[in-house]
């Protein structure tokens, strides 16, 4: 037995080899652990990225759809909103469009906040191009040249005009024609305010049948001037029931 022990020579070297396997094992375990830890960090990051707030996205898309739909609270036609109704948008309108205590919502036009439910901080933003229709009453005093039987043209297209005729004492206006069609007639003389329907497809033009001259200031026109401006309607929805879901705010 002892002899057999003696036959092996490099004993210490053998022990070192045993140690070296152990060291290799520890090294391998360390490498595997580090790799696993790194993988888990990457996976955690990936999961954090996936928290994108689909619910708030869905609510924002729905709300923007509802606001610009023809039957919506502020729209006069699909994607055309009434300017004054837009600025008078109420929180109740937003609640009907999907805002709740959990989903805070803000509506802004060209970056200016119009109305909000709650205080959305971040969240999902849906932007849409809309036409903002604004109408205001325009009053014009066209220049009349020619004295008797004058004609006037106003570079405006509209479907209704309020015509104010105040003839001078020695003049009587008996007939007003627009586009060859008689729109007002009174042999006894026209004097006062008259509502006239006109064609929205051609430039406004009137011809007057008068006895005696008519001067500038004797005829006044008032009409609804509608103007459509392009604007960006942004609907921000922030899901305040969930953590995360960052993004931008308007």
């Amino acid at each position: 037995m002892r002899r057999s022990c003696h036959t092996t020579t490099s004993g210490t070297h053998r022990v070192d080899r045993g140690m070296s396997t152990l060291i290799a094992l520890v090294a391998a375990i360390t490498v595997v652990t580090i790799t696993l830890g790194g993988t888990m960090v990457i996976v955690e990051d990936a999961f954090r990225e996936t928290r994108r707030g689909d619910a708030e996205r869905a609510v924002a898309i729905q709300a923007s759809d509802r606001l610009v739909a023809a039957g919506g609270p502020i729209a006069v036609a699909p994607n055309v909103v009434n300017g004054s109704e837009l600025s008078n948008l109420t929180a109740g309108d937003l609640r009907r469009a999907g805002a709740t205590d959990r989903f805070a919502m803000a509506v802004s036009v060209d970056g200016e906040r119009v109305q909000a439910v709650g205080d959305p901080d971040g969240g999902h933003v849906v932007r849409r191009i809309v036409l903002v229709q604004s109408s205001e009453r325009a009053v014009r005093t066209p220049t009349i040249v020619g004295g008797e039987d004058p004609e006037l043209t106003v570079p405006v297209r509209t479907d209704a005009v309020a015509l104010t005729i105040t003839p001078p004492p020695n003049t009587t206006v008996t007939e007003v024609r627009s586009g060859g069609r008689v729109v007002l007639a009174d042999p006894g003389g026209l004097d006062g305010v008259y509502d006239v329907e006109t064609s929205p497809y051609r430039t406004l033009a009137f011809a007057f049948e008068t006895t005696g001259p008519l001067a500038t200031g004797d005829v006044e026109l008032a009409y609804e001037a509608t103007d459509r401006d392009r604007a960006i309607l942004a609907v921000t929805v922030d899901d305040q029931g969930s953590v995360g879901g960052g993004g931008e705010a308007v």
Binding site: A55, Q62, R66, G71, G98, T100
Partner: peptide, 8 residues
């Protein structure tokens, strides 16, 4: 969870 619906 719950998502509100905005319908006509």
């Amino acid at each position: 969870g719950e998502v509100p619906l905005a319908l006509p």
